[in-house]
């Protein structure tokens, strides 16, 4: 059981249709990610890394191949079942933060719990303590537009953690931040990995990739 990968992709392919032309973006990906690993998926834009992240994050489905999540084949899961996996097991961190503009930081952090089956009573306390741990204690009731980029990303990280997912899936988490803030955010993500989260970062920045224990390069839809 200990050796079952948390994520296992077998000969995964993904194509898109543009008009009548089929474009193969992922050309057979084989990948095993184990619990508590920290992995950087590195590639240039157009390499297929974002498509790969979407599939790993259960936001998109592969055209062919197999996706085993905690040993379970989820390739044919329905939209609702995939939503549940995203809700319970995956915490997303995006380049553009993607906070909802009309609710405050605290409400943004609590957002995933609206859709989960967990009891909601303790959620607010938990959200406050997550934000406090990330140094956002004084910004609980600010709207995203009143926060700096680094602060927004902290809120986004707290949101990714609220449902205690096994996996943190970050897409260019530092792409919109300056160098100093970037390294702060990376410190947070690395420390989460040290506390037991499986960390997957999609990036093209070497500095970011270096902070992860394992690097995977992707080019032209293949792992190299």
């Amino acid at each position: 059981m200990e050796n079952t990968p948390i994520i296992e992709l077998k000969n995964l392919k993904k194509s898109f249709f543009i008009g009548n032309r089929e474009i193969e973006v992922l050309k057979g990906i084989d990948l095993k990610i184990y619990k508590n690993e920290s992995i950087a998926i590195i590639g240039q834009s157009g390499s297929g890394k974002t498509t790969l992240m979407n599939i790993i994050g259960c936001m998109d489905k592969a055209t062919s191949g197999t996706y085993l999540f905690k040993g379970k084949d989820i390739t044919t899961f329905s939209d609702d079942e995939l939503s549940e996996i995203r809700n319970e097991s995956i915490g997303f961190v995006f380049q553009q933060f993607h906070l909802i503009p009309y609710i405050n930081a605290l409400e943004n952090v609590m957002l995933p719990t609206i859709y989960s089956k967990k009891p909601l009573d303790s959620v607010k306390q938990k959200a406050i303590s997550l934000l406090t741990d990330l140094g956002m204690k004084d910004r609980l009731y600010n709207k995203p537009t009143q926060l700096s980029g680094g602060q927004q990303q902290r809120v986004a990280i707290a949101r990714a953690l609220i449902n205690d997912p096994e996996i943190i899936l970050a897409d260019e988490p530092t792409g919109a931040l300056d160098t100093k803030t970037s390294s702060e955010i990376m410190d947070i993500l690395v420390s989460l990995n040290e506390k037991g989260k499986t960390l997957i970062i999609i990036t093209h920045e070497v500095e970011v990739a270096e902070r992860c224990k394992k690097n995977i390069r992707i080019s032209d839809g293949k792992i190299i």
Partner: peptide, 16 residues
């Protein structure tokens, strides 16, 4: 659409 995408990413089902 971004808001809807965010909600979906964090586990909102279609009926939500």
């Amino acid at each position: 659409s971004a808001e809807i995408g965010i909600r979906r990413a964090f586990g909102a089902k279609k009926y939500h």
